[in-house]
Design a protein around this nucleic acid. Structure first.
Length: 493
RNA sequence: GGUCGCGUGGCCGAGUGGCUAGGCACAGCUCUGCAAAAGCUGCUACUGCGGUUCGAAUCCGCACGCGACCUCCA
């Protein structure tokens, strides 16, 4: 990147709960790992928010010149349903319900996940490893954990010895848990016969004969524990210690805590230098979650087919809506907020369209360089997209004012402004022009142009009743006419 | 119960100890045959009560309200 980047990047490290300057281990390379979805059902909007947050991180890191290896896994085995020991694999359960082969379920929902990511213009990661594709690595990790004395086998299953680990290393640092408090607060200690402590967790689980997804291992037929895959795959692709690990807030404990413990037990040191957690999307103040039944799918969102939705919203409206809050804050979903974002995005994109046609003046009425600096500073301040968007609206004001002849900008400044706006809106925020594709119908354009000419003739004869009738009828069809100095333009609403 | 976090104007949503983020809505004005769009102007908030301070929405304490995690969850 030749563009000047204003100052270092600061990100909130949830491990230290502080905003820290981001310094990669091996610049300009950055290793980024994000916990991906478990592919046993459709993703909902809350999931989308997390992946969007890290998409923003990925985009910004890339924009400021880092070479990012972005690993985001697909969990296609290993999540248990219900009580730990009575646990059943989510994917296997779903497979039974749908009368499908487990890998069919995995494929179906993986495809769905990818569709959704594309819909919201969330970039694909550099590597998208699956848990089932890394059994060898996971078994290897279990063996290393056993060797170091923090794993024990019981009856074909292997558990991680949390109290033993906590006796030597810090456990609970990330989530602020304390081992004695965890022990006090453990709910049901029954049915934990195999585990030495209720805090212990399975890193390898013995498969019952009827279990569908199972693999041979040194401990018999079984499947890997829930937290293991991320540790194994991040180690494989990013090394035993890497820069950034991200995920949703709700994964902090126990998932990420367990990852840390596993890596330390297996390889002797903490896996991650910066932990980042995206906050939840809420509905009426409550977390959107599959279990709450308050989630809706992107499809329902777009066509408005859900009792919580007054109308449908486009993916870019939703993307913009989400970017208008900080990733670390909870964001409450509401129709009023979505509608506000829809309008705002429209204004932003309309200004972007004006950029190529701006006419240069001889003096600068606005400081584009300062605007750029503020945009970069906002992003460098823990990816503060809401503040950056605020700055972009200053850019919108400048663009519109220049377009209306109220403000002048030199050719160089216009150029700089165009580059800035396009980089920030399109590249960094990842917003795309949804309208453009729609209006790309030549027949339609021809028809509307014919009406525009008819209306112009009526106007020339001061027959405003006729000209208004044409405009009103078109509006009913969703076509808005605008009279400007250069003539009449149209757009679809 | 434990841990953590939040409470900002009509709505959404940033935020630094001192200089009214921003978006949407609303009102007025400019432009316009009228609209639309755009620009300008107005709407100056920070749960409550104490405390620290020359000064706090911003720091501390207490209270109230809300949420997340503690079990799978982005």
């Amino acid at each position: 990147m030749s563009e000047p980047i204003h100052g270092p990047l600061y990100i909130t490290n949830t491990l230290t709960r502080r905003k820290e300057e981001f310094v990669p281990l091996d610049p300009p390379r950055v290793g980024l790992y994000v916990c991906g979805p478990t592919v046993y059902s459709d993703v909902h909007l809350g999931n989308v928010r997390t992946f969007l947050s890290f998409d923003t991180l990925y985009r910004w890191l890339s924009f400021i010149g880092y070479k990012v290896r972005y690993v985001r896994n697909i969990t296609d085995v290993g999540h248990l349903v219900g009580d730990v020991d009575e646990g059943e694999d989510k994917i296997a359960k779903r497979a039974r319900l749908e009368q499908l082969e487990p890998m069919e379920i995995v494929q179906k929902y993986t495809n769905g996940f990818h569709d959704v990511m594309r819909l919201f213009n969330i970039l694909p990661p550099s590597i998208e490893p699956t848990a089932t594709g890394h059994l060898i690595e996971q078994i290897g990790m279990v063996e290393r954990i056993i060797q170091s004395g923090f794993g024990y086998e019981v009856n074909g299953s292997v558990y991680f010895d949390v109290p033993r680990f906590a006796g030597k290393y810090a456990y609970g640092e990330l989530s602020g848990r304390r081992i004695d408090e965890l022990l006090t607060n453990t709910r049901d200690t029954e049915g934990m016969d195999e585990k030495r402590s209720p805090l212990d967790f399975a890193i390898w689980k013995k498969a019952e004969p009827q279990h569908l997804m199972k693999w041979p291992s040194p401990w018999g037929e079984g499947f890997p524990g829930w937290h293991l895959e991320c540790s194994a795959m991040s180690t494989k692709y990013l090394g035993p210690t890497f820069d950034i690990h991200g995920g949703g807030m709700d994964l902090k404990f126990p998932h990420h805590e367990c990852e840390i413990a596993q890596s330390i037990a297996a390889d002797g040191h903490a896996p991650v230098r910066y932990w980042m957690h995206g906050n939840m999307l809420t509905v009426n103040g409550r977390k959107m979650a599959k279990s709450e039944g308050n989630g809706f799918t992107p499809e329902e969102l777009i066509n408005g087919n859900h009792k919580l939705l007054d109308k449908g919203y486009s993916p870019m409206t939703v993307r913009f809506f989400m970017l208008q809050s900080h990733y670390a804050s909870t964001l409450d979903f509401s129709n009023a907020a979505l509608q506000a974002s829809e309008k705002g995005l429209e204004r932003l994109m309309a200004a972007l369209d004006l950029l190529p046609g701006l006419k240069a003046g001889t003096a600068d009425g606005a400081d584009v360089a300062a605007l750029e600096a503020r945009c970069h500073a906002a992003m460098n301040d823990d990816l503060n997209t809401p503040v950056m968007i605020g700055e972009l609206f200053e850019g919108v004001r400048i663009i519109n004012s220049v377009n209306d002849g109220r403000l002048t900008l030199t050719a160089a400044s216009i150029d700089k402004l165009r580059t800035l706006m396009q980089q920030m809106v399109l590249e960094v925020l990842g917003l795309t022009h949804e309208r453009a594709a729609q209006a790309d119908d030549r027949t339609l354009d021809g028809l509307v142009q014919a009406f525009i000419r008819m209306r112009a003739e009526a106007k020339a004869k001061k027959d405003f009743a006729a000209s208004d009738a044409i405009r009103d009828r078109l509006l009913e069809l969703g076509i808005t006419l605008k009279d400007t100095k250069e003539g009449t333009t149209w757009s679809r609403s």
